[in-house]
C-alpha cells in the first residue's frame, strides 16, 4: 500500500517496519521489563478480586437478606463505568503497582461476585436436600455442592474479569506511569514511533486473546453443557 500511495511515514507505518521493530523489542530487555511491571499489578488486583469476590458472591447467593441488601448497590456499581475513578486512584495510591492493582481489583471484582451469585442461584435444589438429609453441615453444603456447581460460572466470570482488568491496567498506565506496557504504548504514540506503538498494541492484544481463549477452553472442559448457549 505504501508503494502505491506515498504516505507520510510520520503517521503511517507498514508491516515490514512493525516486524523489524518487533524483532528489535523482543531481543531487547525493556519490553520484558514493561510486561513484568504490568503483570505484577494485574496479578495483585486480580488475586484480590478472586479472594473477595467469590466468597461475597457465595454468601449473596445463599443468604436472601444479604442479597437484598447488596444487590442494588453492587448492580449499580457494576453497570457504571468505574474506570472514571482511575485518575483519583492513581493520585491517591500513586503511579506504582498499588494504584493500578487497586484499579484492576475494582474492575475485576464484579464479574466474580455476580457470576458466583448466578451460579449459586442455579444450584440444583435436589443436591442441597441430599446433603441436608444426610446430616451435612453448612460447611459441607458450601464445599461439596454449591462451590463445585458454581465453578463453571466462576470461570465464565474470570473471562469477563480478565478483559475488565486489562482495561484497568491500560487506562492506569496511559494516565500516569513510568513503566509498563500501557505506558510504552502511549509513550511511543507521544513520540511518533508508530512501529513501536504497533508492537505494544499487538503484544497486548495477543495476551488478551490467549488469556480469553484459555478461559473459554477451561469453561468448555468444566461445563460442556453450557457450550451451546454461549453468548460472548
Amino acid at each position: 500500500m505504501t508503494y502505491v500511495f506515498p504516505v507520510d511515514p510520520f503517521f503511517f507505518t507498514k508491516p515490514s517496519l512493525i516486524g523489524a521493530a518487533f524483532k528489535e523489542q523482543v531481543q531487547g530487555s525493556k519490553l520484558w521489563h514493561d510486561l513484568a511491571v504490568s503483570s505484577r499489578a494485574f496479578l495483585w488486583g486480580f488475586t484480590f478480586a478472586v479472594i473477595v469476590g467469590i466468597p461475597l458472591g457465595l454468601v449473596m447467593g445463599w443468604r436472601k437478606r444479604v442479597e437484598y441488601s447488596l444487590d442494588p448497590f453492587l448492580t449499580a456499581l457494576y453497570a457504571s463505568p468505574l474506570v472514571a475513578l482511575a485518575p483519583l486512584f492513581i493520585i491517591v495510591f500513586g503511579v506504582g503497582v498499588l494504584g493500578k492493582a487497586a484499579l484492576v481489583f475494582l474492575l475485576a471484582i464484579f464479574p466474580f461476585i455476580f457470576n458466583t451469585f448466578a451460579g449459586v442461584k442455579s444450584t440444583d435444589v435436589l443436591l442441597i436436600n441430599v446433603i441436608r438429609s444426610f446430616g451435612g453441615t453448612e460447611k459441607d453444603l458450601y464445599l461439596k455442592v454449591i462451590l463445585p456447581s458454581t465453578m463453571p460460572y466462576i470461570i465464565a466470570g474470570a473471562r469477563i474479569a480478565i478483559g475488565r482488568g486489562l482495561v484497568g491496567i491500560i487506562v492506569g498506565e496511559f494516565y500516569a506511569a513510568s513503566e509498563g506496557i500501557g505506558f510504552a504504548i502511549s509513550q511511543a504514540g507521544d513520540t511518533y514511533r508508530l512501529p513501536d506503538m504497533f508492537v505494544g498494541i499487538i503484544i497486548l492484544s495477543l495476551i488478551a486473546i490467549i488469556l480469553t481463549e484459555l478461559m473459554r477452553r477451561l469453561e468448555l472442559t468444566l461445563a460442556p453443557w453450557r457450550a451451546s448457549d454461549e453468548v460472548r
Binding site: 503517521f11 482495561v167 487506562v171 496511559f174 504504548i185 506503538m197 498494541i201 486473546i209 460472548r232
Partner: peptide
Amino acid sequence: TAANATPRIVFLPLLILW
C-alpha cells in the same frame, strides 16, 4: 473474535495520533 477479545482501549493513542 480476536478484536472482541482485545481491550479496544489500547487503540486510543493510535486514534488520537491519526
